[in-house]
Design a protein around this nucleic acid. Structure first.
Lengths: 181, 181
DNA sequence: CCCTTTTCACCTAGGTGGTAAGAT
DNA sequence: ATCTTACCACCTAGGTGAAAAGGG
């Protein structure tokens, strides 16, 4: 599925005439596996069907084996600096999956693990021996506030409500105008 | 609205590593305005509502003033020759309008006039004085079988049926499987 | 019990010709 | 009478969380 909200950046300082590739990848934040806070029927209220729990996570142990470290190129790549800078760049085609055998080129993540999205800008070096300069021709940006825990089902009702309120495709689940929210 | 069927080309012979722009424009086939064959209620059957007529056109006089000669760049432009050649190039984002004040960048045509679509390949010359070589850096292709008469409403029931049978978005108007057609 | 998978109703977004009304 | 415009039901295509079913 698509990552929501979408990762978006506003870019400054490129050479307007040069070509750049823009891409994203995801790295584990730590070496842990998480689990939800236990549902304790003896002390809690009786819950039917799927039960939402607290907003915190417990460490469940060591991380599962790392997934293939795939990369997502922004589909407009390559493009001139002027093109990238003239409006906000949106990674809305990026999709996440937990399927290790995925052959759609989606980003593969382990559920119940924490990830840090990273954004990379690669300068397309016109020189013939450009491979030699690979190390100096890219720059990586990390925004820590974009960290998240990958899940197959939401663990926190407030996250669900936030998604329903802000994602236009979830309008069918709203019970009031998101402007009033 | 979109042009249907879509103009599609398979390209050979480009320099795989060079950049090209692909674009289309539309030129008048002649200097005439057309009109449908008259509906003659005295000799024909009585027709209720909209009446379809013969499959031929009558010349109604001299062409209306030419519309702004807009151009449609394939949205993947510019791209490498290798990219353009590896699959059929489809101009499915191209849209036609009769609105002279259109500000969506659509191709403006006069209704009831005949047009010839043209396909242009422009080599992006990396030399600094590339403007000097503009004349030798493009090639135009004309397929006469793609000529058509622009209309605001279909004049020929067989054209309508062909569109309904072949355009997936018109599936709601089909009364049998297009495979059986 | 905890998590994952599958299916679904319900949306967004936009491409069809039909149809009735409008314009000349 | 002929052509154009505006709106519509009905599609394609695909993004939502809910809910039920499945797995360990």
């Amino acid at each position: 599925r698509r990552m929501f909200p979408t990762f978006q950046v506003k870019i400054f300082g490129m050479d307007p005439m040069a070509d750049y590739m823009l891409l994203m990848d995801f790295v584990p934040v730590d070496d842990k596996r998480y689990r939800q806070v236990p549902h304790c029927p003896r002390h809690g209220a009786r819950l039917v069907g799927y039960a939402f729990h607290s907003s915190s996570w417990l460490v469940a142990g060591k991380a599962d084996p790392a997934t293939p470290g795939r990369v997502h190129y922004h589909p407009d790549s390559p493009a001139k600096g002027a093109q990238w800078m003239k409006q906000i760049v949106s990674f809305d085609k990026l999709k996440l999956t937990n399927n290790l055998l995925d052959d759609n080129g989606h980003i593969i993540l382990n559920s119940m693990h924490r990830y840090q999205p990273r954004f990379h800008v690669v300068y397309v070096d016109p020189r013939k021996d450009s491979e030699k300069y690979a190390e100096e021709n890219f720059k990586t940006f990390v925004f820590e506030e974009t960290r998240f825990t990958a899940v197959t089902a939401y663990q926190n009702h407030r996250i669900t409500q936030l998604k329903i309120a802000s994602n236009p495709f979830a309008k069918g689940f709203r019970d009031c105008d998101p402007e009033d929210w």
